[in-house]
Design a protein around this nucleic acid. Sequence first.
DNA 1: AATGAAATTAAACAGCTGTTTAATTTAAAC
DNA 2: GTTTAAATTAAACAGCTGTTTAATTTCATT
Lengths: 212, 212
Amino acid sequence: MHTFFFKMDLNQKQLEILKIAEKLFAKNGFEGTSVRDIALAANINVAMINYYFESKENLLETIVKQGAEAYKLIPDTYIHEEDPLLRLERIIEHYISSNLANRYVYEILANENTIQKRIINSQIYTELRKHNIQLIKEVIEYGCEKGVFRYYDPILIHTTMIGTLMNFKRNRIIFEELLTLPPGCDFEEYLHETLTTHLKFTLKSILKNENQ
Amino acid sequence: MHTFFFKMDLNQKQLEILKIAEKLFAKNGFEGTSVRDIALAANINVAMINYYFESKENLLETIVKQGAEAYKLIPDTYIHEEDPLLRLERIIEHYISSNLANRYVYEILANENTIQKRIINSQIYTELRKHNIQLIKEVIEYGCEKGVFRYYDPILIHTTMIGTLMNFKRNRIIFEELLTLPPGCDFEEYLHETLTTHLKFTLKSILKNENQ
DNA sequence: AATGAAATTAAACAGCTGTTTAATTTAAAC
DNA sequence: GTTTAAATTAAACAGCTGTTTAATTTCATT
């Protein structure tokens, strides 16, 4: 059981525990979720959590590490595009679809960043951001070389992208209340499309070189 | 002690408890902060918290209510401006300075929104956002009438503004690491200025009517 | 100095916390 | 069928949780 955290080959049961814990941690916070809550939701004995993950904190760390991996930008997803604008769009799409596929993880990542009690997770989150910001910087510089972009601070671009994305999910209730959906349209799908369009428009507005 | 929550006239000691609780709730979360933590930091007896605020949850609710009030947009701050662009800038400045003056509150507000266990606070946060979005909408429409703005969804504008603001604070560590500060410049001040400039530029880029 | 309300205290309360134990069951390997 | 390791269980552990109690102190008003 000690080599587990290096090997990371998880069986069905472990994956299910992770999935349920992820949801509960996101909804009620780490301290707001007891191991008995998780055990009840996963229909297992409480001791199984410590048996598989050694501690509640280690369970969280496993979730955070996996989550950070999902959000990590990889050049493969956009490097084939010639047009810098399209590269930027691929990056935006990567973030949004990652966030959709891992609904709860980023909520946990963001919360763990502010919580000073568990610095390990905060470090993982910081490393993730530094990595992604670096790649965004390269795309911006690429766009500048091509004369399509004006230069703009990649940290600020990244901040606006992630910030908008995160806050968008929190506005769900307001959207539901103020929005009159086009008939026969799935709500989740609509949110996804609206956010994608908005982010592409916003980043283009910031980066587009007016002298072109 | 029962009329307290309607009158809201708090003495020195109560204000200090609120201030310390606010900081701890923001840093470690509501469940991550025990009443004994608060009592220790405030150098008071544990029982005083229940004596003054009836319950831990009520203490949080008081903080949330006061915090929401601080972020509430009031037209007085921008209505005197003729230029729609300047009205928008006043709104941005209001948000940033409110956030600076109440460093921890918005962190709590944002967290409380996601936590499903305490719907009351979530409702307060939703009401606040609906109110502010409505005012932003009016400013956008005002700008459209004057021919300065193109129309753009106020919810999206609001989302990008708040999202960028919140996420900016979380990038502090990265700024500290990657930034070479101009000599003789206070860090906090630099952040404040950078964020203000960035937000004004971003929102203007989105809203500016190209046909002007 | 006496009165009485407000403030403060230490101690106790029941209930929940994460974790460990030791016993039992399951299931695959020989 | 026996052996052996992995999985699962109920129970107990010590420590912490928010809250209440009942006694004491503080302090301004009479």
